[in-house]
Amino acid sequence: MDKTWNNKAWFMVLPVLLLVAFSAVIPLMTVVNYSVQDTFGNNQFFWAGTEWYQEMLHSERFHTALLRNLLFSFTILAIEVPLGILIALNMPRKGWGVPVCLVLMALPLLIPWNVVGTIWQVFGRVDIGLLGRTLSQLGIHYNYVQNPLHAWITVIVMDVWHWTSLVVLLCYAGLVSIPDAFYQAAKIDGASRWAIFRYIQLPKMNRVLLIAVLLRFMDSFMIYTEPFVVTGGGPGNSTTFLSIDLVKMAVGQFDLGPAAAMSIIYFLIILALSWVFYTVMTSYDAER
């Protein structure tokens, strides 16, 4: 079969290329530029080579922030994915319940990040917040401002509240695509509830789950606004995730070189981890 080549197609993608260049490549290059130079203000720059990179890779501060962030990402994945699947499995397939559930599920996703942060910041306050007040009235000494564990719990619950819907909606989309015939066959074959999940529903959700895990991982690994609004990275540095640390360094301390080096390393880590997730999940998929 002959393929027809049409080079005009390249002109069609030109606008997109330009857009990507301006929105991604050029900013990234400026960061690369900063990361290999040093400055003492006055717009004077000196060549620094790989110095900042070496400093970053050996920095205790960077290591703890990285570990903290990984712990956070894995925790929310471990909660949001099973919870999301569970909710999606129990959502109605037809009738008036469908739109109601979909709207309820979509609501948290529509709220801007900083508003989510503010909601939880107020919600958890011991003096005026509904949650904080109720808990302390029940005799539980909950205080996310002073207790690192409480701060962590708050940030995690907030993320679960905000993002589980995404997993739910994706899984639900996978579930509704299963033809009725499969459930009928399962009934004839005497399959248990678990067998139906394991051999019919899970395989159909596989693809969307991969997307959900990737999205949630990348997103939580880059989380900034919500914990920043709620805890400001504290108490101490206990909720200072990578991006919060990065902003502190770049804007707070104006250490452009190290901050730029950190951004690049950060970027590469996300890229590498996403690639690992993707490969592991797709190869698992192919093997089955």
Partner: peptide, 11 residues
């Protein structure tokens, strides 16, 4: 029952 639309368990 054997269905009109063949159902197999892919995995």
């Amino acid at each position: 029952q054997v269905f009109q639309f063949p159902v197999i368990y892919d995995t």
